[in-house]
């Protein structure tokens, strides 16, 4: 047996294998190629300021997409993130307008708490109610958005009504780097450590990879699934506070349609919709790639109206390439 098995597993390393194993490499290569092409057409692409802009633009996306990723790892999906952001943003906005003196850390905590509660509602429906995640969160997508309208009576919180403290949360700088980027980086690192170095994190992968086997192995899948929607809500809550801070307003249509962007970032970043596969680095790179594309299209003066089409095309290319690479690997 020994001889036979060791013979079968002689590693055969080739380009396709590498690309499949290190999905991130593929995205980086793509980013570099794209960057080179854009720089030729528009040299202003390769400036510190421009990169700061790009990162500012995708910071919130990256944070929420990480929550989405954790959910997708368990074969689920959370379509309600955009409405959770909208709801939490509105509630936080109302509190800030009414009590402008509230210390900023309390506001952040409030956002986290509200997001977690919204997320826990998803968790309950999905784990105890046995409603398929896509349906449950499709439902709460409308429910939370409806609550935004009900809550605000259709009104907005405008920039002049918000205190300086919340605005500085994202715009303040540390060593010349905007806080928003640092916060996103910090959260990415936390999520990375969580997924890679805690048992719970590893159990998330296990549940997404094979639920029954996870149960045999003594993991309680329902708990894990409960947890992931909670985390998605938590990160959406943080995203909501940052959203208010960055755009200096809370509107009834805050983050409308954002849910599909988060799924897009995750999918481009190599997260498999069928669960169990995906890394934090990949997703962050996926979000950055999305940001760069948007930025590059503006710089090379492609009509803003065509930008959405280009984004869509990019998703299609990314998933098709991914498939081609995997088929190649499987054939080898």
């Amino acid at each position: 047996m020994t001889t036979q098995i060791s013979r079968r597993t002689t590693p055969r390393i080739n380009v396709w294998d590498l690309l499949a194993r290190f999905r991130e490499v593929g995205i980086i290569v793509f980013i570099l190629l794209l960057g080179a092409v854009v720089t030729l057409r528009a040299p202003s692409f390769l400036t510190v300021n421009n990169f700061r802009d790009i990162l500012m633009n995708i910071s919130i996306l990256a944070i929420v997409a990480l929550g989405q990723t954790i959910v997708i790892l368990t074969k689920g999906i959370d379509l309600s993130v955009s409405s959770m952001i909208g709801l939490v943003a509105m509630m936080v906005g109302f509190v800030m307008r009414q009590y402008p003196e509230t210390p900023i850390f309390l506001i952040v905590l409030l956002g986290m708490a509200l997001g977690t509660i919204a997320g826990s509602f998803n968790s309950i429906i999905i784990t105890f109610g046995k409603v398929p995640p896509i349906i449950a969160t499709l439902g709460t997508l409308s429910v939370y958005r409806g609550l935004v309208f009900f809550y605000s009576g259709g009104t907005w919180v405008n920039s002049f009504e918000l205190p300086q403290s919340i605005k500085m949360l994202s715009k303040g700088r540390l060593f010349g780097v905007p806080n928003l980027i640092l916060i996103a980086l910090f959260i990415s690192i936390i999520v990375y450590l969580f997924l890679k170095f805690t048992r719970t994190g590893r159990n998330i992968y296990a549940v997404g990879s094979n639920v029954e086997a996870a149960e045999y192995a003594g993991i309680r899948p329902q708990r894990i699934i409960f947890l992931v929607y909670l985390i998605s809500g938590l990160l959406s809550g943080i995203g909501a506070v940052l959203w208010v801070s960055r755009f200096e307003s809370a509107q009834t249509n805050t983050a409308l349609g954002f849910e599909l962007q988060t799924v897009t970032a995750a999918v481009i970043g190599g997260v498999s919709i069928s669960g169990g596969v995906g890394t934090v680095t990949g997703v962050v790179l996926g979000a950055i790639l999305l940001g760069i594309i948007q930025n590059a299209l503006t710089l090379v003066r492609i009509s803003p109206f065509w930008q959405l089409a280009a984004q869509g095309l990019l998703i299609l290319i990314a998933v098709v390439l991914d498939k081609v690479i995997y088929t190649r690997v499987a054939r080898n």
Partner: peptide, 24 residues
């Protein structure tokens, strides 16, 4: 190509709408 329909149509969801904006 045997891609999951959710992923494919998520892509064309953006792509088609983008083309609509491109046209008008």
């Amino acid at each position: 190509v045997k891609l999951p329909s959710l992923v494919v149509t998520l892509g064309t969801f953006a792509f088609f709408r983008g083309i609509a904006f491109g046209f008008l």
